[in-house]
Amino acid sequence: MQDDVEALIRDFIVDNFLFRDDRDCLSDTESLLEGGLIDSTGVLELVAFLETEVGIEIADAEIVPENLDSIKSIATYTKTKLAQVAA
C-alpha cells in the first residue's frame, strides 16, 4: 500500500510535470520548484490530484512546499494523511 502511493505519485508527477520517459532524471528528493517543474498552476493540479485520486483532504494551510515539493515529501505527507483517515 505504502509503495503503491509512492508509485502513484511518481507516475502523476512524471505524466504531468516531468513528461519524460527517462525517469532516472528525477530523484525522489529533488525540488519540483527549483527544477522549474511546477509553477503556480502545477501546485493546484497536484492538490486536485491528491484530493480526487488519492482521497485525502488538504487544508489551505497545508499547501506549503514542505509538504509538496518533492516526490518523497509528497509521499510522506500523503501517508500521514491517509493514516489519520484510517485511525
Binding site: 503556480s40 498552476t41 489551505d60 499547501i63 506549503v64 512546499p65
Partner: peptide, 16 residues
C-alpha cells in the same frame, strides 16, 4: 487577472 494565483498560500507565493 490570474485566477490560479489567487488560491495560492503565502508560502508558495513566497517560493515562486
Amino acid at each position: 487577472y490570474l485566477p490560479l494565483l489567487q488560491g495560492q498560500s503565502h508560502t508558495y507565493l513566497a517560493a515562486f
